[in-house]
Write a protein that binds this DNA or RNA. Sequence first.
DNA 1: TTGTAGGCGTTATCAC
DNA 2: GTGATAACGCCTACAA
Lengths: 343, 343
Amino acid sequence: MTQATIRDVARHAAVSVASVSRALNGAASVSPATRDRVQASARALGYVPNAAARSLSLARSNTIGVVLPELHGEFFSEIVRGMDRAAGSLGLQLLLSNMHADVELAAHALRAMRGRVDGLLIMAPELAAATLIDALPGQQPAVLINCAAAGRSHPGFGIDNRAGAAAMVRHLLAQGRQRIVHLAGPGSNLDARERQEGFTAAMAELAPGAPVEVLAGDFHEETGMAAAQALLSRGPACDAIFAANDQMAIGAMRALQDAGVDVPGRIAVAGFDDVPVARYLALSTMRVPIAEMGARALARLARLIDGTDTTTDVELLVPELVVRGTTATGAISNKNPQEEPTS
Amino acid sequence: MTQATIRDVARHAAVSVASVSRALNGAASVSPATRDRVQASARALGYVPNAAARSLSLARSNTIGVVLPELHGEFFSEIVRGMDRAAGSLGLQLLLSNMHADVELAAHALRAMRGRVDGLLIMAPELAAATLIDALPGQQPAVLINCAAAGRSHPGFGIDNRAGAAAMVRHLLAQGRQRIVHLAGPGSNLDARERQEGFTAAMAELAPGAPVEVLAGDFHEETGMAAAQALLSRGPACDAIFAANDQMAIGAMRALQDAGVDVPGRIAVAGFDDVPVARYLALSTMRVPIAEMGARALARLARLIDGTDTTTDVELLVPELVVRGTTATGAISNKNPQEEPTS
DNA sequence: TTGTAGGCGTTATCAC
DNA sequence: GTGATAACGCCTACAA
């Protein structure tokens, strides 16, 4: 026997399909007697409404399309967790799809969601604004996360990378560091660019005389190691390495420690993101509220869908400075890395 | 202007909707001329097929429902990554929903997917077999992951926890450890139970005379700390702690090191899972191929859906022993300071 | 090769 | 309060 439809229930309860629909959806006026009969029949037949049919009829799916790039473990799970939490409390489902770097595929993925989702949550830190806008299905409500394209036609969310970088620079300077080297991320990445800009701007403002140096990087641990080794084996030494993300910072730490360099005694190391590993390695970093960003983006998309919120500005979430052993002045105090604030 | 439908395209191309459908779906016989006209019109109007309508008509959604419990960062992202990878290569989408411990809610979540997905990927290590089977929509193809219910009516995937635990026991014994204490996970969790059983079985077989001790735990780091402290402050000492997961192992390590106990000199520590942090802390552990499990489960579900595979057995993935510093015999590998930040 | 028409399962608009 | 019935957008026999 195949799945029961609303017609089966109607027949079983000896009423019309209209009454079944009304009885089951609560809303309209139905006599208690028929409602009970309908509910009993539905239960007896194991009836479950067909979501596709309902979506077609209502032109609403109660589903949010989520398009993310290939991203590393923690970031991915955190942002999805935030979205899922918000979606659950709003009675929405999440349709996942990962955005390939290929624009063709990305556009295809977006199109495939038409009629299946009520709105889109898109994160594409590597895609240029115009490219993305073109790929967007015309009428679909969408919220852009970490997108260069956000703010104009579509609302967006992002990390205040400039403020974050500035906060770290301020911290390092306050610790007495004089020559801070920034290990940048890939130029194709929006966050990486903003962090670098934040760094140079903050240095120019807070330490006008100090040397400003930026090394190219790619967000990978190996690159952090290589950069640190290069720094050691060349001319004027630096006394602080501020990496554009934690992975590179960790790589730098390893290389420095392998070379017997005192961290932070001789060189301080700082990262960005606060991945879980950072706590164990006592790495100072900027904590990025990823889950919160996901949750807030979802909530805003929901408001956009039901017309409650029609703004298109970009909301920036400010990272929080987390000071640990790798930038502490004097004695390193990572004796108990567990005393970190819980997220 | 609202989204174009197949009728708009038909009108624009001066053909029937049937021809549009045929032309766009490639399959049937259409004259090259009309196909070109249709494609041109579709592009001109920005036509994208409505997935809900198509699902309703075809009784197929090309979507897989994924139901996961609340799980910690890495596990979640890894398994979803595996599924997503496999889904992408098969042209399938992923509809996410997290399974709440509450059976009512779980059943509701499963029901809500009716008509929206072609099959279900369910992971519920905490739910009893019968409960889960009851909650399953009757006809829906489903693959169970880490479920006690797998293997009977539904195919399943799982970790060979017994073999994994045995491998770790063998390793610890080979390292000369005599008194191994197992720090178990929550009894409600299938993996935890199997790991514990694997431990006791392996001990009975490989070290018949040795004392076998099991401490209750809950998979949390704090519990690992508390357990280690308790072990230190009581009677006969042990020389190895084998935790049911990495989190507890890490907690135990910290407690031991805080107490000045030489690890692994006096007490070896081992975990299970190989979370990313494990590498940085030089924790020996069993590596669980999570992404692979997700990918294979999805592939098998796809075969189940198209009738290619109708078996219902459980496939077990074997964890791999990863030996690091915390179980090494002789010289402790603390020589690499960055692997032991609390030194 | 192409067009007509019926059906997929629901909801909503009418009459009654 | 209840019951026909027309959408919703697409696919697919069946005819032509």
